[in-house]
Every structure is written in C-alpha cells, then in structure tokens.
Simulated assay, not measured.
Amino acid sequence: MDYLYTILPTECADDIRQLEKYLAGIGAASEITEWKGHKFGAVFSAETVKYACAEWQVKDGDIIIATYPRSGTNWVKECIRQLLYGQDEKLDKISGSMPMPLRYIESGPVCSFKLMDSIPLPRRIFLTHLPANLLNLDAWLQKDIRIINVIRNPKDQAVSWYHFSQHFPYAEIVPKDWNQWLENYMAGIIPSNMKDNEFYPDNILTWFPYWKHPKVMSIVYEDMLADTTGHVKELANFIGTEASDNVIENVVANSSHSKMKSDLHEKEDPDSKLFQKMELIRKGGVGGWKNYFTVAQSEGMDEIMENKLAQTGIKFIYE
C-alpha cells in the first residue's frame, strides 16, 4: 500500500488510509449485505454496488471483465494487463500492484472509485462478479469501453468455488461437506451477489443479451485453454491494442497458471497474503469435477443448466 502514496496525488492520502483500514479487516469480514434483493458476502458491499450503479462513471478506454466467481477472472485480467502494460516497466508495476478494492467494482469502500480515477494508467481494468442487471450498462456502453464476459463449465466452476468459499466466515451456510455444500450452492444459499434461489445460470442469463453488442466479447474458459494464443490475439484486437507475435507469446507465458501462481506467492502485501491463503490461483484446467460429483449430482446440474439456459443455446465443455 505504501506504493500508492508515491503514485497518487497528496490529496488522496486520506482515501488511501481508509483503504488501508479496510484491507486490515478484510480477513475478518463476515457481514452479508443486501441491495435490490441481491446478497453480498465477505469482501463485497451493497453500499459499494449501489454507488457504482447510481453514481460512478466509467471512462473511455476502460475494460471490464465480468464473470461468475471461479470462471477465469484473474487469468483473463492478467492477459489484458500484459497486453496493455507488459512492455512498459513503470506501467507494468503500477497495474500489477492494484489491491483488490481497486480491481473489483463491488469491493472495498466507496473511496476506491476516487482512487482509481487518480491512478496514472492510460486505461483501467476492472473486474466484477455482479449480474448485468445491477450495473448501469446502458449508460456505460455509451462510452468507448470494452466488456469481456467469461463463462466456464458449471461443474469445474463449482469445485473451484467450493474450495475458495471454505475460507468464508459463514460455516452455517458454507459447509465443509461437499454434498451439503453443493446442495446449498445449487439452491442459491451461498452468497454470490445473486438473489435467494439464484446462482451461476441466473448470472449468465443477465449477461447473455449483451453478447452481440459490439463492445462486449464473450469467452468460453475451456476454449481459451485449448487455444490460448488464438484467444489472446482476439483479446488484443478487441481492446484495440497492437501486439506482435513475440508480444503475444510473452503474454501467454506470463499469464500461465504456473506463472501467475508463482508471482502471487512471491508477493508480501496483505492483499496477496490473503489470496495465497484462499488459493486464488488453485488448479485451473478441465474435468476435475469428476473427482467430486456423483452421477446423480452431475445429472442434477445438467438438468438445471439445460432448463435455465435452454433459450441461449449455450453448450458447456466438460472435458
């Protein structure tokens, strides 16, 4: 956090201290807040979401990566960050040092938005797990922004979310037993920015209508795993940045699962330490769900996805 004092104007000092206070208590955050029937747990805040929707303004050039939790958020973010700033040592350091509240739209105190407005970066990268209906998208898309919506097969997503959510302070609704956890998850009990009885497919349904918008790009996590180089080239074209074959090759290498995990564990700041503990970068890959789901559970997930997403034509890749 000391680094922020060196790159932000002096008038931001009070806001930085407020952010430091927030980060000091983030590991113990346990309050579930609510807005418009949507519930936000742990590090996310209804007050912040309300401000983002009602008052915050995006800027031309902003990039927003929208996903449901554990669907490739940080991987795609790192690809974008490397494309924009990987060739510039100063901007690479600044963009790589953003604590969580300066990355996630729904995280941190409201002053995080003021700080991001002052960050000396030509283009900003934001992340969100919010459903599209909670964001002021129609107004935002009037600006020259880009939105990337990533989806992952719901079984591998569920396993990754199970492990990550074990660090949440809600033992009564986030059980350690996989069978009970999955039942709670598919019943929409585990807080994930959705309403009661809603979970992953309901989030997808809010974003799907925007997939054909020229400023929105949809990505399938498993397709990107199968052809990372091709997808990084598509991302470069989509955000409007030129990238040579050598740059693309470096981006693919520097955003690999092993490199990202290694980089995270080399950091000593409180934000990174928390995410080391929570296994922010876990395993990735496709097909690990087979070690967790019973046949009945797999069929149950299939049925829910087919019923809820029938009109979208979405077909997930499970292996």
Rank of each mutant, 00 (worst) to 15 (best):
Ala310Trp: 04
Met217Arg: 11
Glu242Gln: 13
Trp140Gln: 12
Leu115Arg: 08
Val252Trp: 04
Asn136Thr: 05
Ala54Ser: 13
Lys36Asp: 13
Ile317Asp: 02
Asn149Tyr: 14
Tyr170Gln: 11
Glu319Cys: 14
Asp88Thr: 03
Asp245Leu: 02
Leu4His: 11
Thr228Gly: 10
Pro99Asn: 07
Ala29Glu: 00
Pro131Met: 06
Pro270Phe: 10
Ala42Asp: 04
Ser256Asp: 04
Leu134Lys: 09
Lys277Leu: 01
Met260Lys: 03
Lys114Pro: 10
Pro99Phe: 12
Ser262Lys: 05
Tyr5Leu: 08
Trp161Leu: 11
Ala226Val: 04
Lys143Arg: 11
Met217Gly: 09
Met1Cys: 13
Met194Gln: 11
Gly285Asp: 06
Ile151His: 15
Ser272Phe: 06
Ile239Trp: 08
Leu127Lys: 08
Ser160Ile: 08
Asn307Lys: 14
Met305Ala: 10
Tyr85Arg: 05
Ser298Asn: 15
Asp15Met: 12
Asp144His: 06
Ser112Cys: 11
Lys273Arg: 14
Thr6Asp: 15
Met260Asp: 11
Tyr5Trp: 03
Gly41Val: 05
Leu8Phe: 00
Ile80Lys: 07
Gln297Gly: 07
Lys267His: 09
His129Leu: 12
Ile173Met: 02
Asp177Ala: 01
Trp289Lys: 04
Pro99His: 05
Ala132Gln: 07
Leu4Pro: 15
Glu268Lys: 05
Pro131Ala: 00
Gly300Lys: 10
His231Ser: 11
Glu11Arg: 03
Trp181Ile: 10
Gly108Tyr: 06
Gln180Gly: 14
Asn193Thr: 05
Ser95Gln: 09
Ser97Asp: 10
Ile94Asp: 13
Ile32Asp: 01
Trp161Gly: 00
Leu23Gly: 04
Ser97Tyr: 05
Lys212His: 12
His257Gln: 15
Pro169Thr: 02
Phe199Asn: 14
Gln18His: 08
Gln276Gly: 13
Leu127Cys: 09
Leu127Val: 02
Trp75Met: 03
His129Glu: 12
